[in-house]
Design a protein around this nucleic acid. Sequence first.
DNA 1: CGTGAATTTGAGAGCCATCAATCTAAGTGG
DNA 2: CCACTTAGATTGATGGCTCTCAAATTCACG
Lengths: 251, 251
Amino acid sequence: MLTRNVLRNRTEDFTDEERSVLESAVERAQTHAAGQTVVRQRCAVDTSTVLVQGLMTRHVHAADGRRHLVAVHVPGDFVDLHAYVLKQLDHDLGALTDVTVALVPHAALDAIQARHPQMARRLWFLTLLDAAMHRQWVMRLASLSALQRVAHFLCEMNAKLLAIGQSDGQRFLLPMTQTDVGEACGLTNVHVNRVLRELREMALCSWRGAQVVLHDPVRLAATGLFAPDYLYLNPAMSLRVAGHTGDANAR
Amino acid sequence: MLTRNVLRNRTEDFTDEERSVLESAVERAQTHAAGQTVVRQRCAVDTSTVLVQGLMTRHVHAADGRRHLVAVHVPGDFVDLHAYVLKQLDHDLGALTDVTVALVPHAALDAIQARHPQMARRLWFLTLLDAAMHRQWVMRLASLSALQRVAHFLCEMNAKLLAIGQSDGQRFLLPMTQTDVGEACGLTNVHVNRVLRELREMALCSWRGAQVVLHDPVRLAATGLFAPDYLYLNPAMSLRVAGHTGDANAR
DNA sequence: CGTGAATTTGAGAGCCATCAATCTAAGTGG
DNA sequence: CCACTTAGATTGATGGCTCTCAAATTCACG
């Protein structure tokens, strides 16, 4: 079941019928090696991509070529669904690890939109989740210190991986270099290193190789001013995420 | 015609029939005074809002209450169309000036989605434009200096206002305080002031009261590393915007 | 004119970038 | 099994961009 993680544990979910419609819309699976660019800016596309296994990045380029991440995608993310509507993308998609993706032709999405309006709305919802996350990334860059940014980023990844069963709430694998984290948080790799040391010394988290351990998720969320509302998780999952508004840290 | 600026001069546009469907989906118009909050975070909503006249801001709050803009909306923007799908918002919408808005009940949007799939796709497109702009805001905050950020912001506002006929390509009204600009660019009002002085001294632009004049749009775009691809303007409009890729400043 | 908001300018401090060097770990080939 | 290579992590020193605090000036408006 290639698409089983799509919308998993969000406030909206597919019905069983819808999920099988989505599954049968998959044309084929494909793999890409770590480091490859999967979809390139400005190329017209007629297929969209569901990430099945591995991690992908979405990054924009400044006109001078500097690269910046706007999203880190986990399995279940319909990484370029918006290309179905926009027809060409304003950014690149890259493979952070070796990845498996499922390809969905836009013609199949046309059929879904014509025959399953409710399901089309759920696909729309998926793209709006991305937008909501973008807004938090804006907030993070604009309002948070380096320490807070990295803490916030780790909380977000923890929550997203928790939703698809790839974190237990404290431990998960995140095969990113400190340079990658810098590109996600608007920091240099050098400063990311210092911040991670500080988080380690504060006993909030550790990160050796790809293994991340959040020793105190609640305090980490407080440090990063993380509140997971914007992830639109379903109530059950929301309760399991540190920083949820039940913590009464709403403004 | 309250909705005439919706999708105006973008790569997708409504047919005449679709536009009249949208127009008749409007329940009523409404006004709000400058400074008012129009839609508040976390409130469930059953109506979406098209901005008809005036300017609105979209802003998120950090958990400590600090406010940050993620968008400045101009007439024709369907400012909270995403609430139709998300059901509740993760941010606030505020009136920057006195504004007129048109209210579209979600029930009317349900009808459109059921009966006009192609039109539904265009509404989806609208929300994806917002996401594309969010990505540029992320880039701006992460990769640009203060001077570049403000230059980029002014180029963006110029392009958006040009598309709806409220800029001539060099001159437009932008009734924002320097504090507002700071919240949009991740800067303090003090530093915004210094940056504007520098842009003035470089003979790139001036800003007295609400009147913005771009004395050299091309050089301003180059300064802010502005490339308008992400606005998905139609070809004719794209050519009129400084920084378009015909300038051969693509990476 | 008086009042308050917004703009403008100055001085000092701090966070983070930059530059540079060292260290570690994981291959790779002989 | 061990030099050799390379990518990434780590640490130090320095500098600059931007924030903070503070005060003066301009502007809008009643």
